[in-house]
């Protein structure tokens, strides 16, 4: 799936080339820019978009 939104701030990639700090999981869906529900545990991280389901949190 093509990345259309920055996973750090949710802006269209035409406006933000990627601003997520190092070691931060994705906070916004790369497909729709919607804020993700993220759960960090000691050795895992999961991210879920309301519209696109489970997404890659390290994108």
């Amino acid at each position: 799936m093509e990345t259309q939104f920055c996973t750090g701030c949710g802006s269209p990639v035409s406006q933000c080339a990627g601003c997520a700090p190092p070691l931060d999981p994705a906070r916004f869906c790369a497909q729709c820019g919607r804020r993700l529900t993220v759960q960090v545990t000691p050795t895992r991280v999961t991210a879920k978009c309301r519209d696109h389901g489970v997404v890659n949190p390290r994108a």
């Binding site: 931060d24 960090v40 545990t41 000691p42 050795t43």
Partner: peptide, 13 residues
């Protein structure tokens, strides 16, 4: 603290 933190990631344990 090994692994991840509360909302950010750590390096691999």
């Amino acid at each position: 603290i090994v692994g991840n933190y509360l909302t950010t990631l750590g390096r691999a344990p």
